[in-house]
Structures are given as C-alpha cells and as structure tokens.
Design a protein around this nucleic acid. Structure first.
Length: 876
RNA sequence: GCCGGGGUGGUGAAAUUGGUAGACACGCCGGAUUCAAAAUCCGGUUCUGGAAACAGAGUGCGAGUUCAAGUCUCGCUCCCGGCACCA
C-alpha cells in the first residue's frame, strides 16, 4: 500500500466509482425533503476558469452537505449555448457556430468533471438544441395569445460593431455596448417585446419577501423597477402662436399633459419643458427653425450621449404659453434636452424652487423661481438652490393650499387636479418592456410567420420547433438565416398562402430565464411537467453578482409567466441566493503596445521576485529578461491576461486542493485573491491529513468509547470534535462562511496531531474525531475523504453517510478560564470550576497576584462577573 | 448626486448576542533533518521597550454612551460596487 498522497489516481478512481454507480442521479421522492441546489450555468467558451471553480465548488459543498443531512438533492448542470462569441469564433476560425459550440461543450464537460462536482449529468441540457428551445418557442406563442408579447416600432440601442440591438441593461453608463465597448447609436426598427411592466408591481412587492437574498441585489432590483407614485394632469395652452397642434395622448390639441410626483408644488411652476421627440415640439418645429435645429441636434446625440451631457442643460422656447391649473398664471413652454420622451408623458412641469434640474435650467435662461414650500424650521432661500425637502415643510404662496404639510398639500392639490385639470393618480416605472428581438443568427428563431400584408401568424404547436439551420457558412455581416430562402419562405399557417419567417432570434436571456425549471423535467414532451413542482423553487441559487438585475429579474418574470400559464405553482424561482465574488489576481504590463497602450503578460511568462514581507518586488519577462510593471489586483480576465488555468492547477495539486483553496481564503461573497502560496498551503494540509490518517490502524476503529471515564485531555478532544461539528454545520448552513468552517476543521486536525494517547479511551476519542472530521471535510474535498473513509475500515460509501451529529454533553466543561480585568484592562486569568458561584469567581479573581498588584492603593468600587467569561474589577 | 457594502498585523482574513482583538492560513525569521537541495518537522512572528516576567500603544479619523466598544450613537474621511436628467 502506497503511503504518499497520490491525488491523481485517487481522484480518477473515486470519480470513476461515482460515475459507475450513477451516484448523483436523482428522481422525485415524495417521502424525503427535497433540496434543489443550482449554480448559474456557464457559457461554453471552451475554457474553464477560476470563477467557475469557485462558483461550482460552493454549490457542490452545499449540495453534498444537504445530501448527508438526508435531503433528496438535485444538482444539475447545462450550457447557456447561444450567443455572440460563437459567431465571433465562426468568423475567426471559419467554422459554423454550432460546430464550435458543441466542441466546446464536450471539452468543458470533461474539464468540469475533473473537479468532481456531484452533478446529475442525466439532466444535462444545452439551450441551442431544438429539444430545449422548441418549448420557449411554444411559450412565446402562448404569450402572444395572451397579449404579453407584442411587436412595435421602437427606438433601440444599436451596437454598430456587433450589428445588433442591445437591451438597456446591456448599455453601460457611458453609452457603450457591454461587450463591444462601442458607442451605441439609436435606430428605429420593429421589435418584439415582453410585457414585463405588467408584472412590475408584483416583482417589486415580492422583492420584499426575498429575505434570503442579499440586500444589495434586492436594492438593485427595486431601483431598476423604479416605482414612483404621482399625478398626471393637463396644462391648458393659452396662446398657440399659430402652431397647428396634434398633441397629447388622448388627442387633445389644447393642452400638455404632464406627470409629477410633487403635486404639492404645482403652484410653483414657472415654465414647462417637453422632450425633443414630443409631438408639440415637432409641431412647433414646422414653423420655427430654431426649434427644428435644436430637435435635430438632440436626435443626433442619441439617448446615451444625452445622458453623458447631463451637466449641460439646454433648451429653446416654443413660443407657447400654458396656464398653471393652481395659480392661474401663464407659463412659457420650452423644448429641452433633459426631458425623456420614454418616461411619463414626455413633458414636465418645471418647479425651479423645488427641483434642482429645473432650478439649473431656470438660472441659465433667467426664468422666475417661485418658492411655494418653506421649511418649518429655518427659512430657506430658493435663489441659492432648490429646496427639495418633504419633511417639516409648509406650503406658501399657494393660495387656497397655503399652510399645509407635504401629505396634506399632496392630497389637496391632487384632488383639485383631478376635478379641474383632467387629472388622475398614476404609478410610473423606470422599468421598460423587455425587447427580446436580436438581429443575430446564433440564437433561438422567433416562431412567427408573416403573410404578404405583414400580419403576424404564430407557428402552430405541431410545426414546432422552428429549427435553426446549423450547417451554415458564416460571414458575420448578415445572419445566414436572413439570406436563406429555404428558411425564410414558407406558407402561412392554416392556408396555402406564401409566407415569410421572422429572421430575428431571441435575446439569449430568454433561454437562461427558464433553464432552472427545465432541469426538473428532462425529456418531457412539454415545456415542463408535474415533476417541476416537486423540485421548484430552487432552494439555493449561486452565481455572480453581475446578474443582479439582468438575469435574476428576467427569471423572476418568467417564473410568474409560467405560473400564469399554469406550468408551475410557486411564485418565485429562487428561494435563497448567494452571489459569489470575483477571482482576482495581479496584472503585469508594459506600455509598449500601439500608441503606448499597455500589453499585458501572464504570470506564466514572468519571473517574479518578492521582498522580505512577501510582497511582489519585481517581475521580469523571461523571454527578454526585461522588467514589466506590476499592475493592479483585478478580476481575472482575458484582456488583462491575468488568468490562471484551473486545469494546470488541478494537474499540479489535484481537484481537492483547488476546491479547498477556493473556499478557504475568503467568504464567498468577497473577491478571492489568487495566491499560489495559499494553494500550496491547502495542498500541504491535505498531505498531512493523509499521513496522519494512515497512522490509524484497526485498533482505533475497534476501541470502545466510554464517555463516563475519560481523562481531562480525552474530554478536551471530544469537546473540540463536537464544537467543530457545530461550527462547521452552522458555517455551511446558515452563515455561508466556508473559510471559517475550514479553519475550524484545521484546528481540530492540529489538536488531533498533537494528541498522543494510545490507551483504549484515547484511541476511541481519536477515532470518533477522525470519523467526524472526514465527514465534515467531505463536501469540500470529496475524493481524499472518500479514500480515507475506506481506509479507516468503513465499508459504506461516504456520500451516503449521515452528517455528524453534535453531542451536546461533550461540550460541557469541568473548568473554565476567566479573564480578569482591572478597570477594563486584561490583567490576568484564573481557572475555576465551571460550577463556581459569582462570589467565588470574584474572590478568585481578586486573589490573583498580578491583579493585586494593580489594585494596590485603589479602592474597589464595583465588580462585574460575566459567567463563564470574565471578571472586571472597577477600582479607583 | 443618490443607494448599497466596506476600511482590523507584512498579506488573505477571524472575532456570530457589547465581554481575552488578530482564530486559521500565507509570507517572513530562527532551528532540526540533509553532502546539498527539495520535501518534512519544531519554535517565533501586531507595534514599542525588555533576556524574560511584564508594561505601554493599537481595529480609517474625531467625539460620545458603557464597568467594558472592532462591534452601539453622532460627525468626518477614504475605498469598492450599483444607479444616475425617471419629473
């Protein structure tokens, strides 16, 4: 029998054993509590990276832990397989996106399997396969029937590099595409939308109930939905200046409709502003060239750039006046670049006294600033800045509405507007409907056929799926299906009329919005079947925080859609959410690229030296012997070339070491700093574990434990064992602090290594400790523990063992150490029997020599005894 | 600007309910083993003074509450993440 820790053969053998036994294949079992643990599935790039290792290890630890606790655990894995990288690779490598994707899936599955994650591979799915996407095509037709999917011309974010439409969420704060980084343009094209706004209220309300989600994610979702409560009402136009108007929503040509959350400030309106796209601005432009020029200018800058020019507020008067429905005053109407056509009515009332934007605009154009709200504490001057408080205020200069606080003024004015200004109370959302059309090839075809009049016909169920041709030549300029007559030309359903297929495909978030449910119904001849309601909702979902709004909001929306179509019975898809942090590492570069741009070097190409504090002192490129600059510690990425290949590391140290390292250093929601020294430390620990464990012979397993006759040291080992069981269980289950769980197991191991006692009772407590330790460690390092379990003489499979139970009796102490403080400073400690009374603790503490020394010349005023912890003597 | 999360040794971090600040690791220093190295083992490691016992200081900064504050309160500061003309 070999004594060295041969992780390569151990891991291969153990994995083969699991595969042969289909150890992680599960079916529904109504007699056992279920636990569905899911990690966000990967895009099959072909390369496993450290972020995957971290993500999937967390899920595996939770899954294996739950399994040992007796739960029927489902942990599946699949592939988020549609998307742009396949198209980019196709252009680069002259291969079809499908071929490239399927190859990557094969490779990545193999890489993933080397980590030894307890997946039920029989449920594996790939979103690019017709047997998956046919059901979302079917679902889409149901949504059209229910009016939840619709088509409209829409201004979209057009990425000029990727030649596609981006969702608002895919455009960053600078107006650039999230992947290409190119400046996004505006275009108007017909698009399919899902009515997520119809679910805005429910999504928002239930955000409050997701109490096992990180607060940060819930806040982001609330902000994203952006609910606001206000009043919509009309400002009647006074003079039209000869402008022919066809304006507001309800066809009224004589008023401008606005939305406000501050009806209490209407009396303070001194002007109005409309968006450049507003019909009244367009109408005015026909007779006013200054207005026309301004509108043209706004259109060319685009939404995103307009956002960038936030600091520069500009506008042009339309030559119109409207009547303030509260004060009766006439106010001028402007077209302004800061008003959004897509929110509210596209027109705003401006209250420069009580809104900072309006204030800035008024100052710039010399418009009057009228104060209608005053602080009930210290009077404020609205010439200095806008006064926006709502608390401790009183209305002034508002005629019949004077002297009211916010709530009363809101109510009174809203009522007035309802009766006199065609007003209605209204809730508005920042959230917009979800545009799901993409002008892309490698995605799920939208199952729609147009007749020659352009009418929409959904593809009937029996004709689904609309299969995406996979064997295509791909140039990258136009989607292959958009120029493929075999794909496009068809007949209109139910007729012999010629028809044409929709050539747009779905946003890939469509696929990832329901995959978690499909895992529950593999092979079902329906989108989902009754098995889904056994497993759903997902009990534990784990993934990157970058999906806090996009994917997680869409999936919640989809779940509610599926519920309303009758496919699932639950309201929310993910009960508990863990968002894991990034894996970060140093980057190294030289500014010798084109135009002095940095060129990044991987640490594999470098010789790195450290100072005596262990910090990086310098790095030298091996190939030319010259120094490179040590950059920031940042997320491992291709662009910074600071990634570390997990497979190389698994080859060098083993999967157990990589799993243990990824969990040991940092709590899962924080950034994990890559340090090979840390990996070596974990490897060292496993080698020591192996060596120490092999010292246990049969006499340990056979030793009889008599808890009634243990020595103090033996009791101490038992106490440590059972404390560790409690600590590790709590850290995994409740706290998610896997790093401290590992630390406590190391503490137990260190104590065991020092404990030398060959007596019967000594061997018995050691055996008990090892038996617990191996099981506690098994979710983290399942291979080595499997092997050790066998070598300890057990004939059972470790994965089928029960999680260790804490024996509360083992936790009791005969003696305790009390810290003694004098005036709050630690001066000594005394050991007393656990049963010692407060008075005796106090006496023992006071009697201590060092304590006496510090009490010299002082009078004791008070003694605080915290049982089991400390004694604080207050003296002066 | 608004919202959220943070700031603790040379480093990653721990301290869960206000009760011994720095667990567990990494790194470093010293020693053992070795012809030598790797590997392994033992000891030390918050800072200052001291051979040590011990003493003083110490959780971003400044106040406060308390017998006792990394933890609670108030003010400030810096960092990270998200959102940002949303009327």
């Amino acid at each position: 029998m070999q004594d060295i820790y041969d992780f390569r053969s151990i891991e291969a053998d153990v994995q083969n054993n699991w595969t042969a036994n289909e150890a992680f294949t599960v079916t529904e079992d109504p007699d056992r509590p279920k636990f569905y643990c899911l990690c966000m599935f990967p895009y099959p790039s072909g390369n496993l990276h450290m972020g995957h290792v971290r993500n999937y290890t967390i899920g595996d630890v939770v899954s294996r832990f739950k399994r040992m606790q007796g739960f029927n655990v489902l942990q599946p894995m699949g592939w988020d397989a549609f998307g742009l990288p396949a198209e980019n690779a196709a252009i680069k490598n002259q291969t079809a996106p499908a071929k490239w994707t399927y190859q990557n899936i094969e490779e990545m599955r193999e890489q993933l399997q080397r980590l030894g994650i307890a997946y039920d591979w029989s449920r594996e799915l790939a979103t690019c396969k017709p047997d998956y996407y046919r059901w979302e095509q079917w679902f889409f037709t149901k949504l059209i029937e229910r009016g939840l999917a619709y088509k409209k011309m829409a201004m979209v974010n057009w990425d000029p590099v990727e030649q596609t439409v981006l969702a608002n969420e895919q455009v960053d704060a600078n107006g650039c595409g999230w992947r290409s980084g190119a400046k996004v343009e505006r275009r108007e094209i017909p698009q399919w939308f899902l009515k997520i706004t119809q679910y805005a209220d429910e999504l928002l309300e239930e955000t409050d109930k997701l109490d096992e989600w990180p607060e940060a994610v819930r806040t982001m979702q609330r902000n994203w939905i952006g609910r606001s409560v206000g009043v919509e009402f009309d400002f009647v136009l006074a003079g039209r200046g000869g402008v022919e108007l066809d304006v507001t929503k309800d066809g009224k040509a004589d008023a401008i409709r606005v939305y406000t959350t501050r009806p209490d400030t209407v009396a303070g309106v001194t002007y109005m502003a409309v968006a450049a796209e507003h019909p009244i601005a367009r109408a005015a432009a026909t007779t006013n060239s200054e207005v026309a020029d301004f509108i043209a200018e706004c259109a060319s800058t685009g939404t995103s750039e307009a956002a960038m020019e936030a600091l520069e507020k500009r506008g042009v008067p339309l030559g119109l006046e409207a009547i303030n429905p509260v004060s009766g005053e006439r106010v001028p109407v402007y077209v302004a670049n800061f008003v959004l056509m897509t929110y509210g009515t596209g027109a705003v009332m401006s209250v420069p006294g009580h809104d900072q934007r309006d204030w800035e605009f008024a100052k710039k154009f010399g418009l009057p600033i009228k104060q209608v709200i005053q602080s009930s504490k210290d009077p404020v001057d609205v010439e200095e800045s806008a006064f926006v408080d709502k608390q401790n205020t009183v209305t002034i200069n508002s005629g019949e509405f004077d002297g009211l606080d916010f709530a009363a003024a809101y109510e009174a004015t809203a009522k007035h507007l309802e009766t006199s200004a065609n007003g209605e109370r209204k809730v508005n959302y920042r959230l917009r409907d979800w545009g799901v059309s993409r002008q892309r090839y490698w995605g799920c075809p939208i199952p729609v056929i147009y007749d020659k009049e352009g009418n929409v016909h959904t593809v009937p169920e029996e004709d689904l799926p609309v299969v995406l041709p996979e064997d295509v030549a791909f140039s990258g300029v136009k989607s292959p299906i958009a120029e493929d007559p075999d794909f496009i030309n068809t007949t209109v359903p139910g007729t012999n009329e010629p028809g044409t297929r929709e050539t747009d495909t779905f946003d890939t978030f469509f696929e990832s919005s329901w995959y978690y449910a499909r895992f529950c119904s593999p092979g079902a001849n329906a989108m989902l079947d009754e098995r889904a309601n056994y497993w759903l909702p997902v009990d534990q979902y784990i993934g990157g925080v970058e999906h806090a709004v996009l994917h997680l909001l869409y999936a919640r929306f989809f779940h509610k859609l599926m519920r309303d179509v009758g496919l699932v019975t639950s309201d929310e898809p993910f009960t508990r959410l863990l968002t894991q942090g990034m894996v970060v590492a140093e980057s190294f570069y030289r500014n010798d690229g084109d135009g002095g741009k940095p060129v990044y070097y991987n640490r594999d190409e470098l010789e790195i030296s450290y100072d005596d504090k262990g910090r990086i002192a310098s790095a030298i490129l091996i190939s030319d012997g010259q120094a490179v600059t040590v950059g920031r510690i940042e997320k491992m990425s291709k662009s910074k070339n600071n990634g570390v290949d997990p497979l190389k590391m698994i080859e060098r140290y083993g999967a157990d070491t990589m799993r243990l390292f990824s969990m040991s250093d940092t709590p899962p929601n924080q950034s994990l700093e890559w340090k090979e020294g840390g990996v070596e430390g974990m490897h060292r620990f496993l080698k020591r574990l192996w060596r120490e464990a092999l010292k246990l012979d049969d006499s340990y397993a056979n030793a009889v434990l008599d808890t009634g006759s243990l020595s103090a040291d033996q009791k101490a080992i038992r106490r440590k064992t059972h404390e560790t069981i409690g600590k590790v269980s709590d850290d995994i289950e409740r706290r998610f602090t896997f790093n401290t769980a590992i630390a406590s197991m190391m503490e137990l191991f260190n104590e065991l290594s020092r404990f030398k006692d060959e007596s019967e009772s000594g061997k018995a407590v050691v055996h008990e400790a090892w038996s617990a330790l191996v099981r506690l460690l098994s979710p983290f390092t399942p291979h080595i523990t499997h092997e050790l379990w066998q070598r300890m003489g057990y004939t059972t499979e470790l994965i089928d063992e029960a999680w260790p139970e804490q024996d509360k009796d083992a936790l009791t102490r005969d003696e305790i150490e009390l810290v003694v403080q004098v005036n709050g400073k630690r001066r000594s400690s005394v050991t007393v029997a656990a049963s010692t009374s407060k008075e005796d603790c106090e006496a023992a503490a006071t009697a201590d020599a060092n304590v006496q020394r510090h009490l010299e010349g002082l009078t004791v005023r008070k003694v605080i005894v915290v049982p089991g912890r400390l004694v604080n003597i207050v003296a002066n």
